[in-house]
Simulated scan of single mutants.
Amino acid sequence: MKIFGHRGYALRYPENTLVSFQAAVDAGADGIETDVHLTRDGVLVLTHDEEISRVSSGHGLCKDMTYEELLALDFGSWKDPRFTGERIPTLDQLLDLLEDTSLILNLEVKMGFPYYPGIEEKLLEKIRARNFLSRIIFSSFNHYSVAKIKALEPAALVAPLYMEALYEPYHYAETFGAGAIHPQAGLVEKSIVDACHEKNIAVNLWTVNRTEDALKAQDLGVDAIITDCPLELITALRS
């Protein structure tokens, strides 16, 4: 079972920053999960919320701000003063960090409110240009968005995110060619995992932070867990 760092190493570092991503790499994570938005001037940036006040020194919507405006803000001190000066990363910066590793990158496309016209095309253009397609999982709560990515690039691995029980999610995933499902932890049982695997559909759970939940996921045969505390779970499960 693979262990992915949720927003990097979000338990101990300011989420979705380069220091958090590097910490997940250093912890030995198999992959990194992050969230991608589009700025007003078309730059792909990584942060979770559409509105940035929770994790930065500013406020406003990503879609209404230029990259330079976002870059002027502090994205680290909210977590701890020692992270003062951490900036919002671009997708390119994270790809640079991962380029010489074998880590998988799970990109959650933020496509609820607000709406980012053309973000799927822009993401695919970037990922193809950087030769990262085989290492990317595109996920989203907006299933139209991941279905669009799959239609635009049949080789893309896409996964619907969901937080309520789906009836026979393996059949649902097949309707648009999803190669994985990303349910909230607790929404699957072994029969679902087994049925997914029979159809070559991976099951990746979020967000698993307790050792007992990670062990349960492992017993179910889950393919990966997404966690805020990669080092702690790697140590507990692989020691």
Rank of each mutant, 00 (worst) to 15 (best):
G31K: 05
S239Y: 10
D49A: 00
S57N: 06
L73Q: 14
Y172D: 09
F21E: 05
K190T: 08
Q93I: 01
L98R: 02
K122M: 13
L231E: 15
P160H: 06
S239D: 14
F176T: 08
C229D: 15
Y162K: 03
P169D: 08
E15T: 07
E50S: 09
V158F: 07
M163G: 13
V146F: 04
L91N: 03
T84V: 11
I225W: 11
H182N: 10
Y162R: 04
T47A: 00
D74G: 11
Y116H: 15
V188C: 01
A214Q: 13
A156Q: 12
V188R: 00
Q184T: 07
G85Q: 08
K122I: 11
T90Y: 08
T34H: 12
H197C: 09
I192E: 15
R210M: 11
L97S: 03
A151Q: 14
R12V: 03
K63N: 00
G8I: 04
K126A: 15
V222A: 09
D41Y: 08
I192F: 11
K63V: 01
G186P: 04
K122Y: 08
E125L: 10
D35G: 09
N106C: 01
P117V: 03
D49S: 00
P169Y: 05
D41K: 03
G58Y: 02
A147K: 08
K63L: 00
A156E: 12
K216H: 15
L98S: 02
P14E: 08
S56I: 02
I32T: 08
A23R: 06
T175Y: 13
E33L: 04
S134I: 10
L46T: 01
G112T: 14
I149V: 14
A202H: 14
L94Q: 00
L71H: 13
M65E: 00
R54D: 05
V45D: 00
L71P: 04
T207E: 07
G179Q: 06
P154L: 04
E232I: 10
L61N: 00
P183C: 02
T90F: 07
E125H: 12
A236Q: 09
R7F: 06
N200G: 13
A10G: 07
T47D: 00
L98F: 03
H59Y: 01
G60Y: 02
D228N: 15
L44T: 01
L220I: 09
D64A: 01
L38A: 06
I226M: 13
V55S: 11
E153A: 08
V19D: 09
F113M: 10
N200Y: 13
P81C: 03
E108W: 02
L233M: 08
L152A: 11
S53M: 07
N16I: 06
G28M: 01
D30T: 03
D228P: 11
S56C: 05
